[in-house]
Each structure stands twice: as structure tokens, then as C-alpha cells.
Computed example of a mutant assay.
Amino acid sequence: MKPLVLYRVDLRTADPASALRRIDPASPLLTGTDLAATRGDGVFETVVVVDGVPQAVEAHLDRFERSASLLELPSPDRSLWRTAVETVAAEMDVPRGAVKYILSRGDEVTGEPTGWALGFAPTHHRSATPPELDVVLLDRGYRSDVATTAPWLLQGAKTLSYAVNMAALREAHRRGANDVIFVSSDGYILEGPNSTVIARIDGEYVTPPVEFGILPGTTQSDAFDALTDGGDRVAVRGLTVSDLSGADALWLCSSTRGAAPVRSLDGVAQQVDRAITQRISDFLNARKA
């Protein structure tokens, strides 16, 4: 990641003119007692920016609000955060970048929440065409009904606590792969560490339901729009490992990569449908806020 633009967001005012302050991306931002750093206690979103235009902003704000509610954080001011994203995006001089915006519970001494928005260029993917992925399946360690049986585990919230996700990606690299699909302990497909799964089965494009404790996929939702616009069938339902192994094609959807096709699953080659991938990519790259 190459940091390009950083703004501090003052959450004590709703006036964007006075709430946003640009600072050097290399300068200190947090106190040593900020709960984002000491506890990972906060939420975030990442919006892709194509030619200066931030994409799917409203869908990301919806999920930002949902995550904040699950963590019992102050409800984000949509107008303020929308302006922060648009301001950062307008100052990024790259064809393809992203804006990550963060709401922390804040300094545990003062009790004041903190916020900031960072514009950056992803080093792993700067092309409009998503990469083809080698993926492994890893046990997530909980059942598919965890969101209802143990809501305090905050499954389905996009939090700053990413240690497990990063450990899963390191395990994938040790196995010669570059991404992961998590599986519940009762055998259902969940999501990737930072992506949503789409599987094509008998001509139908399927993604797992958020009731399994996974994030609502903003890119996956737009990918489904691209598919239905072309007359394809889509569905949201549970998928098992055997369903995935027998799929015609697989994709992992995320903001910075788009809909990336899976070329191998646990070392077994998978069909890559480059025509459908390009159709989805063209749709995603043409999105507006």
C-alpha cells in the first residue's frame, strides 16, 4: 500500500468544512491510548476509486453504519463521512486507488471517538482487470449460526480486529496460495478474509447468506446486478464444500480487486471464465457513488 492522502475527521462537528483537516500521511495520528491501536476497537470501510470517482459509496456507508451499530459505536454522520471520502478521492492522482475510512472508539482516557480517511494506491492490484487467484479452504472454527447464537462475537461487522484474517492469509501463502475461503465447523462456505464468494453452479450464480455471520458484500451485490443485467440467474443460499468443489467457476469479490476469478482451489485447477469476469469488471468500473 502506498499512502497518498490523509485527513483527520473531527467527530465533534458535523460541518465538513471544519471537521476535515489534511495531515501528512507519515505524521502521527493516534495517541498511545487510542482503542483502535490498543484493542482494535473500531470499524472501517474501503471504497475503490477509479479515475477520481469513488464507487458504491452509499452501500459502503450502509455497511459502515451497520458495523458501528453492532459495536455500539456512535452512529456515523453519513454526510460527513461521504464528504470525507469524496474529498480524499478528489486529491488522489492515480487511475485506480482506494479510500479507507475508520471510526475508532477513541482515546480510552478522554472517551472521545476518533476518525480518519486515508487515500492509497493498492500495491497488489492497480489494474482494471482482477487477478486470478489460488485459494485454499480453512476452518473458521465456528458454526454457521454463530451470528444468532453468539452475537457478541461480532461476526458480520467490519472491525479493525484483523489479526485472524491476516494469520489466515499467511497460512495460505505457506500452502502456496494467495487467498482463503473460510468454512464453518458445520461444513458451510462463509467468506474470504476480505472478500465475498460467488460460485456458478449449473448456470446459477450463488453467494452465501449474511445470516451465516458474514459481511454483506458490496462488490458482490453489484456483481449480481451486472449478471442479472445480462440475463443470468443469481441466488443467495447456503453452499457446502462439495458444492464449491463442483462449481463451474468461482470468484472472490472485494472493493480493491473487484470480482477476482479463482483458478485453483486446494491445489485443484478451476475453470476461469474470463468473459464473465470482464463483463463484471466493466460494470464495476463504470459505477458511481
Rank of each mutant, 00 (worst) to 15 (best):
L239I: 04
V234N: 02
T110F: 04
D10V: 05
Q271V: 15
H124F: 14
T13I: 04
A90Y: 05
L29W: 00
F64D: 09
A150C: 08
S75A: 11
S184A: 10
N178S: 14
A226T: 04
M92E: 12
G203E: 07
V197M: 01
R105F: 03
R279D: 06
S161Q: 06
L133D: 00
A121V: 14
A89F: 01
K100M: 05
T31H: 01
L227A: 03
D186W: 06
S195P: 06
R8Y: 02
L244Y: 10
P216A: 15
P76Y: 07
V164W: 11
F44Q: 13
R39I: 13
L133R: 02
D225T: 14
P151C: 00
D93V: 14
S264M: 00
D248G: 13
A150G: 00
G141Y: 10
R78M: 02
S255Y: 02
G42F: 09
S221V: 11
A269D: 11
S144G: 06
P28D: 02
A84P: 03
G238I: 06
P28T: 02
R279N: 10
V210T: 15
L227I: 09
V272H: 01
L71C: 10
R140L: 14
V268P: 11
G156D: 15
Q55G: 08
H125V: 14
E132F: 05
G106L: 10
E132A: 02
G231W: 00
D222R: 14
M1I: 09
E72Q: 13
V197L: 09
A117Q: 00
L284I: 03
D10R: 01
A199N: 11
L11E: 10
A59Q: 15
D273T: 07
R233H: 12
D232K: 07
